[in-house]
Structure formats: C-alpha cells, structure tokens
Design a protein around this nucleic acid. Structure first.
Length: 490
RNA sequence: GGUCGGAUGGCCGAGUGGCUAGGCACGGGUCUGCAAAACCCUCUACAGCGGUUCGAAUCCGCUUCCGACCUCCA
C-alpha cells in the first residue's frame, strides 16, 4: 500500500497503487513504430511515464520498465495486402528494412536522451520475438479463439465475446461494433477472409514480393500488430504485471486486443492498472499528417518550422508537457512554450540560489508543509501541474530568503535543499541545459567585464556601452546584478 | 451516425459544493549611470439559460460551440 493513486482506464476510477510483488514493479509502455522521425506528440508518453518511472524508483521500488520498439507487423491497412509500414518505407528508400528501423530507432533514442528520459530496463523489438508471437497465436487457436484462413490467422472476436468482455477497456459494446461495422466510409479489402469484420489479424500471409517475412505453421508471413505487445510483456513481465501505459489513441483497438489475446491464452487481464495519456494538439486539433500540422522533434529543437516562432530546448518541451495533467489534451502554441521557457528558467535558477543562501538562528519557513504539498500532488495520479505550482511556491520562498525578506533555520534549509532538488531533478527529471563554458571563454569574458567595470567607474559610459552592445550583437548578454556582472551565451 | 471528453481571467493550465492554484503577459516597486536581466508585490476568471442548495465555477437539466475515438496513430 502506497500513498500513490493512479487512474485506471480499465476500471475507470482512481485507485491506490499496490504492486503485485513489492518491492518489484513491472511497467510496460507501448513504444513507437519506427518508420519516421518522432514528432512533438511522441514526446508526451515518454515524459509522462518517465515521471512515473522516476517516482516509483524514488519511493524505493525495484522497477522493470519495458518499452517496445515496433519494427514489423504494423499494417498500413488491410488494403495494402500485407505490406507493412517498415517494408513500405524501405522500398521507397532502397534500404534494408532493418536499416530503416535502426535509423528511426536511433532518432527516437536521441529524443529521449535529449529530454533526459531514463532508459528502459528492456527495450524489446517485435522482429526479435517472432517465435514468442507464433507460440502465443498457436495457443489462442487451440483455445478456440482464432482461426486460420489461407495462410493468415485472425482473432475470433465473436466467439471470444461470448465468454469474455471485448470492448470493456475502450467502452465499446460488441453488438454495436458488429452492427456498425462497414456501414461507414472505410471499405477494407481482405474482409471476406474474416468471419467477422471486427476480427483482427494475429498473423498475415506474406506475398512473394514482401521483404519482411518469417516461416510459421501457416506458411510465410508476419505477425499482426497487437500480438507483439502481448507476447513481449508476457515474456519479460509475466502474465500479470503492474502498469500498462500508452497513448489514449491506442485504447482501441490495440489495448483492447491485447487484453483479449492474453485472456484467450488462458491467462488473465495482463495489467493491474492501465494508464493512458492524452494527445498534444495544435490549434485544438490532434497532430496529423493529413492536417499538415505536424512538427518533428528536430524541427522543434531547431525552430525550423513555419509554426514555430523560435527554437525551443528539450527541457522547455519537457516542462511544457509536465505543466499539464497527463490525462488532458495539451495545446501547442508559441506563447505557451515561451511561458514555459521562462518559468523553467526561474525554477532552475532557484536551485542555484538555494546554495547561496545562508541559514539564520531562527526559522520562519514551514518547510515540512511545503514538502508535504509536493508529495500530495504527485501522489494524486501524478498531478505534475500542482506539483510544479508548489515548487514555484518554494521558489518564491527561496528568493525571499535570498533577498533577506524572511529567515530560514539550518535544519529547515537542509530539508528544503534536499527536497527541492529531489523533485526538480530526480522526480521530474529536469536538468540544467547551460553549456559549460571553456576556461578560455570564461577568462576572456571576465577580462571584458573587468574592463567595462573600470570604464564605468571612470564614468566612461560610451566605452562601457560599446562593450555591452558589441557582445550583445554576438549573442552574449551581460547582466548587472547585485553581486557583480554575469553573462549568458546564446 | 455511434461512444466519450471538453468549454476557466490577455495566453497556457490546475482544481472543485463555502477556503490562494501556478506559470507567462500587463501594472507597481527594488536594484541600476542608463538599459537589460534578476527579484519582490499586484492582477480574482470559471460558455449561455434554467434548477437544487443557506451557499455553485464546482451538482442536475437544456442550449450553443469544440475535440477525440470508431481497426494509421504517442
């Protein structure tokens, strides 16, 4: 029993987090399909679940964090007659499929790295677990919940739903799914193979020209999308583990099907808690290629996109994401990002101020209360916006101590330092981004600052202003503070 | 069409039957040769119309508008 509460999408309520086998915690998060550069939206899940990961570690749990890489089997759609996203891209660029997967996996890792996201304990690839997936499919067939047609295997949603509840996670009713199927815009090929249009592929037959294919009991082919997560989570975390995370857009059909596959294997609902984060929107709409409102991570960090007024740093993006609760949509705008950038700087500056202030004999700060409010916030379904609001309350306190407006005792200062840094750096995973300047540049700058100060003392303001202005045009800002002049490089 | 979720001050974004969200911007101030930066203080909003209640932004109903999902999706 912990103080942490988590909203479970499956039960649709906020529950106390109790691990199956404390102190161990198993987490499975759906990772990306590596067929393109990550975009802004791809950053949210990793950041959200990184806080979960970090906080559970902070609480002393031994966390096994599994995040998969989907490098095969994710169909563009059935109409492509079995061509998957990776293979399609590969043909286009005349590269090995694995070359594509590796390339985009690397770019994904680069994003995670720059955003200071802890590495996963295990990062399994779907293509490396074909055997496990085949075994699982065989088990589902022998339990009577899947059938083979012409070299492909489909999950029999209808027969499954007679015994189990298909649609519970995503709030769907099987009768509606069946009744509503196919009456709308989408007409999919290959549907005639299926007993029911809601049946989903576990294994797809591959044509001769298909470059990613494996031998199986049903001939050459490749696995369907949903089975990889079931097979890999089972392999590394067991039939039942603690938390399964992902984006809300994966609720149906992906997670719904994962549950069905696990239960159809004679197992049970795989995850004790299902956590889903919401989407990042642009002008209130989800980022989508068709809307042409996508911003890639590279563009975001370089500012090279018409939607961007400037470049934003990885930490600014991380902080922007953390300033909203993970279950709400988060709308992108330049004004919002710039607000986050300034707020983040204030938050990080306070961690340095914390080491410059001195304790007093008497104390006027209720540190315990401030810390308690931070824990209350994160325990409440990872409410990072409230946590950050409380941290800003600490910032004001810290700055007021530094300004001599209020006093803090020795013990209280120690507690404040320890907890402030723990929340900002260890739990939220923020970090200072300032480049460490070389000794030579630093020495040069101190020389210039000294010369300028001498000019100022002689009231030779034309010289002092010239130094300041010329440095400014080079992107170096001088800041005259109480304790002398400092500088920042842009 | 079906299912679900929203509408909060200039912007972003929490929360919730009575008690300060927070950040950014604006305004005032400290510092300063000037400026910038930094810091302090200030700023009281909950789509519309009804209803329940001693009291509602928070509960209920209706209306308007917006979004997500419905086998590409983080």
């Amino acid at each position: 029993m912990t103080a942490l509460k988590i909203y479970d999408t499956y039960k649709r309520e906020t529950l106390s987090f109790e691990p199956h086998k404390a102190p161990f915690v198993g987490i499975y998060v759906c990772g990306p399909t590596v067929y393109g550069f990550p975009h802004l939206g791809h950053a949210r899940g990793p950041v959200v679940f990184d806080v979960l990961h970090r906080y559970l570690r902070h609480l002393g749990f031994k966390v096994r964090f599994v995040r998969n890489i989907t490098d095969v089997g994710h169909l563009v759609n059935d109409a492509d007659a079995g061509e998957d996203k990776i293979a399609k891209k590969a043909k286009l660029e005349q590269l090995e499929p694995m070359e594509i997967a590796q390339f985009y996996t690397d770019s994904y890792h680069q994003m995670l790295n720059s955003m200071n996201v802890l590495p996963a304990s295990i990062e399994p690839r779907a293509s490396g677990h074909i055997i496990e997936q085949i075994e699982m499919i065989q088990e589902i067939i022998s339990n009577g919940f899947a059938y083979e047609v012409n070299g492909s295997v489909y999950f029999d949603v209808l027969s499954y739903s007679k015994q189990h509840d298909y649609g519970k996670l995503s709030g769907r009713i099987i009768e509606d799914l069946i009744a509503g199927a196919g009456n709308d815009a989408r007409v999919l090929e290959g549907q005639d193979e299926k007993r029911n249009s809601n049946d989903f592929a576990l294994w797809k037959k591959a044509g001769e020209e298909h470059i990613m294919q494996w031998n199986s009991p049903w001939g050459k082919g490749f696995p369907g999308w949903h089975i990889e997560c079931s097979a890999m989570s089972k392999k590394y975390l067991g039939e039942t583990f603690d938390i399964h995370g992902g984006g809300m857009d994966l609720l149906f059909p992906h997670h719904e099907s994962e549950i069905a596959q696990s239960i159809a294997c004679g197992g049970q609902q795989p995850a004790k808690y299902w956590m889903h984060h919401n989407m990042i929107t642009v002008n209130g709409q989800k980022m989508a290629k068709s809307l042409n409102n996508g911003i890639s991570i590279d563009e975001f960090f370089s500012g090279n996109n018409v939607l961007l007024e400037k470049a934003y740093s990885p930490m600014t993006l991380k902080f922007f994401i953390l300033q909203a609760h993970y279950r709400g949509t988060l709308d992108f705008s330049n004004a919002a990002l710039q607000a986050s950038e300034k707020g983040l700087n204030r938050l990080l500056a306070a961690s340095e101020t914390l080491y410059k202030i001195n304790p007093s004999a008497n104390n006027e700060v209720d540190v315990d209360k401030l810390v308690e409010k931070c824990y209350d916030a994160i325990n409440e379904d990872l409410n990072t916006p409230i946590l950050i609001a409380n941290l800003f309350e600490m910032v004001t306190t810290i700055n007021n101590i530094a300004a001599g407006n209020i006093k803090i005792g020795t013990n209280e200062l120690e507690i404040l330092r320890k907890n402030y840094n723990s929340f900002v750096f260890d739990i939220l995973g923020l970090k200072l981004e300032q480049e460490v300047n070389s000794d030579k540049i630093d020495g040069l700058m101190h020389m210039l600052i000294k010369m300028r100060n001498e000019a100022k003392i002689q009231k030779n303001y034309s010289v002092s202003d010239q130094i300041r202005n010329e440095l400014s045009s080079l992107g170096i800002e001088l800041k005259d503070g109480k304790d002398g002049t400092s500088y920042t490089l842009n």
